[in-house]
Simulated assay, not measured.
Amino acid sequence: MNSILKVLVTAAPALLTLSMLASPAQAAGTSGPDTCASGYVWREAIPSDHVCVTPQVRQQTAYDNSQAGSRRDPNASSGSNSCVNGYVWREAFQGDAVCVVPAVRQQTRNDNAQAANRLAPAPLASGPDTCLSGYVWREAIPSDHVCVTPQVRQQTAYDNSRAASRRDPNGPYGSNSCVGGFVWRNAFQGDAVCVVPAVRQQAIDDNAQAASRIAQ
């Protein structure tokens, strides 16, 4: 177990029972494009938080959520979301102001950075769009059957999950404008999910290779 989390779990034995708060399917992330690789579960800092983490991190997250009210200092500089001394905002997602110890915030950043690498590639059905061995459907949208590597599929799912946080509604293209450093993915016509430029180039390359990756 990560040494940081070992200390935290030891200090808070009650959190060891918190994995029972969700159904087994939710805890394992066993459905949909956000299915976790073996050994990981959804973090669920909020119900829609499907970043895949270890079971210990999920338990720590639930415990920190349960302690949120007791760790706030409403008289401090940031208002009602201010943390008492020794705690900082977790920042698991945009706007996450749950107060945690600094080690947990760092763990959260590490887990967010590894999110795309912890998703399980989904098996594909047979049919005219069946991919060659080693490739899977990208599914930027459900009908997107461009064949890509499992890593690209995982990145695509992650970028979809972060889409709202990367938009600048006051930008030149209205509600679909991207914040600085991001561009439209353009995996398909009208695809305005904001990604880093390297991901858009990957989408262009995968689209160009699409026909050569279909099983004959």
Rank of each mutant, 00 (worst) to 15 (best):
K6H: 07
V7W: 03
V7D: 12
V7T: 14
V9M: 14
T10W: 05
A11L: 14
A11E: 15
A12C: 02
L15K: 03
L18Q: 13
M20C: 05
S23Y: 00
P24E: 04
Q26V: 08
A28Y: 04
G29A: 09
S31Y: 01
G32E: 07
P33C: 05
D34S: 13
T35P: 02
C36A: 09
Y40L: 07
R43D: 11
E44P: 03
E44K: 09
A45R: 14
S48Y: 06
D49E: 12
H50Q: 14
H50Y: 08
C52H: 07
V53W: 04
P55Y: 04
A62R: 13
A62K: 10
N65E: 11
Q67V: 04
A68P: 06
G69W: 03
G69M: 08
S70R: 12
S70F: 10
S70H: 10
R71S: 13
D73E: 13
D73S: 15
P74H: 12
N75R: 07
G79S: 09
C83S: 13
G86I: 07
G86F: 12
Y87H: 15
V88H: 08
W89G: 09
R90Q: 13
E91I: 01
A92T: 13
A92E: 10
F93R: 11
Q94A: 15
D96F: 05
A97K: 13
A103M: 05
A103T: 11
V104E: 15
Q106H: 03
Q106A: 15
Q107G: 06
Q107M: 12
T108Q: 12
N110W: 07
N110D: 07
N110S: 10
N112W: 03
N112Q: 15
N112V: 06
N112P: 00
A115M: 11
A115I: 01
P121W: 07
A122N: 08
A122W: 00
L124C: 09
L124M: 14
G127L: 01
P128M: 11
P128I: 03
C131K: 13
L132E: 04
L132D: 04
S133L: 03
Y135K: 12
V136S: 09
W137F: 04
W137A: 10
A140I: 05
I141Y: 01
I141G: 00
P142R: 05
H145P: 00
H145G: 00
C147I: 03
T149K: 12
R153F: 07
R153K: 11
R153L: 06
Q154Y: 00
Q154W: 00
Q154T: 02
Q155F: 00
T156D: 08
T156Q: 14
Y158E: 10
Y158S: 11
Y158L: 07
D159H: 07
N160D: 10
N160Y: 01
R162V: 09
A163N: 12
S165R: 02
R166G: 04
R167Q: 14
D168C: 12
D168W: 10
N176K: 15
C178Y: 07
F182C: 05
V183R: 05
N186P: 00
G190F: 08
G190K: 05
C194S: 07
C194M: 06
A198L: 08
R200P: 04
R200T: 01
Q201H: 04
A203L: 04
A203E: 02
D205R: 04
D206E: 13
D206I: 00
A208H: 04
A211I: 02
A211G: 02
S212D: 03
R213C: 08
I214P: 00
